[in-house]
Amino acid sequence: GIQEIVAMSPELDTYSITKRVKEVLTDNNLGQRLFGESILGLTQGSVSDLLSRPKPWHKLSLKGREPFVRMQLWLNDPHNVEKLRDMKK
């Protein structure tokens, strides 16, 4: 599951990941809330907090790293936007 992926993950640049996620969401007119609930399993508040103030990787616990790994996996998925759009319906 995701825990193994997080444990094996190389250090991620949390700042550039969140910046990229925000760009993709904005460009495709997708909400942070939808993204947070569907992709990260987080509430709106947690998501906007994460996206606006990402902590550096080395300061995060494994649990804290999980959303960033999920974001990275989502960014790597060529169908990420379509999938999210489908969830919106």
Score class of each variant (00 low, 15 high):
51 L>R: 02
19 K>A: 10
56 P>M: 05
83 K>F: 07
5 I>D: 12
66 E>H: 00
82 E>L: 09
1 G>E: 15
35 F>E: 00
70 R>N: 07
4 E>Y: 05
71 M>S: 02
14 T>E: 00
69 V>I: 15
53 R>P: 04
63 K>A: 14
66 E>C: 03
67 P>Y: 05
1 G>V: 08
88 K>V: 08
84 L>W: 03
18 T>E: 01
51 L>H: 03
60 L>R: 02
21 V>G: 00
40 L>Y: 02
57 W>Q: 01
1 G>D: 14
4 E>R: 08
13 D>I: 00
43 T>C: 14
80 N>V: 02
80 N>W: 04
79 H>A: 14
86 D>A: 14
87 M>V: 13
49 D>I: 06
25 L>W: 01
36 G>P: 00
10 P>E: 12
34 L>N: 06
84 L>M: 08
33 R>D: 12
37 E>W: 07
86 D>V: 11
54 P>M: 04
57 W>R: 01
82 E>H: 11
28 N>R: 03
28 N>E: 06
21 V>L: 04
67 P>C: 07
54 P>F: 01
87 M>N: 11
3 Q>L: 10
65 R>G: 02
24 V>I: 14
1 G>S: 14
25 L>N: 00
30 L>F: 09
19 K>S: 10
59 K>H: 09
79 H>Y: 13
66 E>L: 06
28 N>V: 01
54 P>L: 01
76 N>Q: 09
87 M>D: 08
87 M>T: 10
77 D>C: 08
2 I>C: 09
16 S>F: 14
52 S>Q: 08
76 N>Y: 05
10 P>F: 04
47 V>S: 06
47 V>N: 00
41 G>M: 07
28 N>T: 05
45 G>V: 09
9 S>C: 11
61 S>A: 05
83 K>T: 07
27 D>R: 15
21 V>W: 01
27 D>F: 09
10 P>M: 06
40 L>W: 04
71 M>V: 01
74 W>S: 00
18 T>A: 13
62 L>V: 08
15 Y>V: 13
58 H>Q: 15
59 K>P: 00
46 S>M: 13
30 L>A: 02
82 E>K: 14
86 D>H: 12
32 Q>H: 11
10 P>S: 11
35 F>Y: 03
19 K>I: 09
77 D>G: 03
36 G>Y: 07
6 V>D: 12
49 D>R: 01
40 L>C: 05
76 N>E: 12
2 I>H: 06
51 L>I: 05
42 L>K: 09
41 G>Y: 02
54 P>K: 02
17 I>W: 10
52 S>K: 08
12 L>M: 11
80 N>S: 13
28 N>C: 02
11 E>P: 13
80 N>Q: 10
1 G>K: 15
61 S>F: 00
87 M>G: 11
89 K>H: 10
64 G>S: 08
45 G>Y: 09
61 S>T: 11
6 V>P: 06
50 L>Q: 00
20 R>S: 06
75 L>R: 02
84 L>Q: 04
11 E>N: 07
10 P>R: 08
24 V>Y: 04
31 G>H: 09
32 Q>I: 15
82 E>C: 08
2 I>P: 05
53 R>G: 13
23 E>V: 06
75 L>M: 05
22 K>A: 07
58 H>F: 13
61 S>Y: 00
5 I>E: 14
69 V>G: 01
24 V>M: 10
76 N>D: 15
3 Q>W: 05
87 M>S: 13
12 L>Q: 04
31 G>P: 14
39 I>W: 01
52 S>R: 09
78 P>Y: 06
2 I>R: 06
6 V>L: 08
83 K>W: 04
1 G>M: 08
6 V>C: 13
69 V>D: 04
11 E>Q: 09
47 V>W: 08
86 D>L: 12
28 N>D: 02
69 V>S: 01
72 Q>W: 10
23 E>A: 10
45 G>S: 12
22 K>S: 10
85 R>K: 13
13 D>H: 01
24 V>N: 02
27 D>A: 12
15 Y>Q: 09
20 R>K: 13
70 R>K: 15
3 Q>Y: 10
84 L>I: 08
40 L>Q: 02
57 W>K: 02
17 I>F: 03
9 S>G: 09
